[in-house]
């Protein structure tokens, strides 16, 4: 008996491979939609640039520092969106009954849902996020140490894992409230927008909320404060800046449990 994780990855790769091949059959269309995705996601950054045409510092951060926040969260979110961006279709699948057809196949349902309609154009967001991140790394005046160098890729990967957990948890949520799938957007897209700005501009309660309740602060805020050498508005102990991997693992585990509970509930109620 092969393990569930192996089967999930295998199924996911099979379906994604099929979508990529079918996307690549229309190469021009792919390039255009990827560019569109890049432009669309880049508008957020244009907004920040426009703001900085009037100011030099926002919430204690310079433009290059804000760009670092923007680049890390956008790349993380972009990776999660690329990998699991189809999760928000689950509610629709439940309503129109196509979820049932996934349960008929000898493969994990989560992998099938996640891989469905895999959209390679979402590389646009990742590209754009990485470009901004690259610019930020060169201009933010970071005092490089080996720890800081390591922290940057770790931040992006852990951030992606946390966003992935949010997507899966959001999908699980739709087993009970399929009509309310838009709520998921407030955590995913909303969270991504929030993390583009320095924590200091937000109300203290809100920052606490995204640190302890929905731990989005670990996507980039806390490690970024360490990389950029900025003080933590909540005054948390220094080690939390390195807690992202543990938080990401915990989030993924909880999201996985939520998914299993959701699927079990679906299989016993059928709706």
């Amino acid at each position: 008996m092969r393990s569930g994780a192996y089967e999930s990855v295998r199924t996911y790769r099979l379906i994604v491979g099929m979508w990529v091949r079918s996307t690549m059959a229309y190469r021009t269309s792919f390039v255009l939609t990827a560019l569109g995705n890049l432009a669309a996601t880049g508008l957020d950054f244009v907004t920040i640039l426009l703001m900085f045409s009037h100011i030099t510092v926002l919430g204690g951060f310079t433009l290059a520092q804000v760009a670092f926040l923007y680049g890390t969260t956008s790349t993380s979110f972009g990776i999660a969106d690329l990998l699991l961006g189809s999760m928000d279709r689950l509610g629709r699948r439940i309503r129109d009954g196509t979820l049932d057809t996934l349960l008929l196949r000898p493969a994990p349902v989560l992998a099938q849902v996640a891989a469905d309609r895999f959209a390679l154009r979402r590389l646009g967001r990742i590209t754009q996020g990485l470009a901004v991140l690259g610019w930020a790394l060169a201009h933010a005046g970071i005092d490089w140490t080996p720890v800081r160098v390591l922290l940057v890729p770790l931040t992006v990967l852990c951030g992606a894992a946390i966003f992935c957990a949010v997507f899966v948890a959001g999908g699980a949520f739709q087993f009970w409230a399929g009509d309310a799938s838009e709520v998921q957007n407030s955590v995913t897209y909303g969270g991504n927008t929030m993390l583009q700005y320095p924590p200091a501009i937000f109300a203290r309660e809100l920052v606490r909320g995204v640190t302890f309740v929905v731990p989005l602060a670990f996507v980039n805020w806390l490690p970024a404060l360490r990389v950029l050498g900025e003080p933590d508005p909540l005054g948390l102990p220094g080690w939390v800046d390195f807690a992202s991997p543990a938080v990401a693992a915990l989030c993924c585990a909880l999201a996985g449990l939520a998914w299993r509970a959701g699927l079990r509930s679906y299989r016993s109620t059928g709706s």
């Binding site: 703001m51 009037h54 100011i55 926002l58 919430g59 909303g190 927008t193 929030m194 700005y197 501009i201 937000f202 109300a203 809100l206």
Partner: peptide, 9 residues
């Protein structure tokens, strides 16, 4: 989220 960023600006 947007309101807080405007407040800062």
């Amino acid at each position: 989220i947007i309101a807080y960023s405007y407040e800062a600006l």
